[in-house]
Design a protein around this nucleic acid. Sequence first.
DNA 1: GGATGAACAGCTTGTTCATGG
DNA 2: CCATGAACAAGCTGTTCATCC
Lengths: 119, 119
Amino acid sequence: MPRGEGKFLIKQRAFLKLYMIRFVEEHKMYGMQAMDELKASFKPFGYEPNHSEIYRSLHELIDDGILMRQKKVQEGAKYKEIVIYQFADYEKAKLYKKQVKTDLDRSMSLLRKALEDVY
Amino acid sequence: MPRGEGKFLIKQRAFLKLYMIRFVEEHKMYGMQAMDELKASFKPFGYEPNHSEIYRSLHELIDDGILMRQKKVQEGAKYKEIVIYQFADYEKAKLYKKQVKTDLDRSMSLLRKALEDVY
DNA sequence: GGATGAACAGCTTGTTCATGG
DNA sequence: CCATGAACAAGCTGTTCATCC
């Protein structure tokens, strides 16, 4: 998806998809919980993803053929239903991670260059 | 302008405004020339800003009270007219640079954290 | 009532068109 | 022609509304 020509920094969507893959690798997360963890983790950096972007990231990974829904589970409390994911194609997941790494490195270079050029 | 809450990476607009300020400090650029220099400079990083974003950045700096138009100049060839800028308020410019630096550092931290977390 | 998902709205950016010398 | 600028369109993200158990 990183199409390489003319684009600026990596998009939030790709950034979150990366973390969603990581969470599924650790098979311990569902959407809201992932969001809470990310919010807590990134709050010191002034970034707090919202629930819509989390879900859009998960859905897009399904469309990409990388994830699939595993099941809906009742958990503890009476009215609570969650969605669990597993890999539909782990090779694709690894490939995607590799692509995103390239884009992360590229983005870091852009920012670093600006800091060097201007300050 | 960095409002700090919930936001992801620095925006292209702010990034370019920073470079526009730098070009005016070096008092040697007009819009298209700035664009060409940036395109050449960032092409190895897969980023090539387009002319609209350049002009929007310059205009926004005027709206911010940081730059002002200096003059229109005929340069060399018969049908070529360019716009030159100077600072309207250099203290504001320095303040803006400081704010953008904060946002650049913050953005770097986000990316670095992702690279550490996932790879 | 907590989780998921869709609909809607706003902002940011890219593409195309217009003007002027 | 070339630089500038505006208009228009597309894309991405945030906010709000709906549903389900």
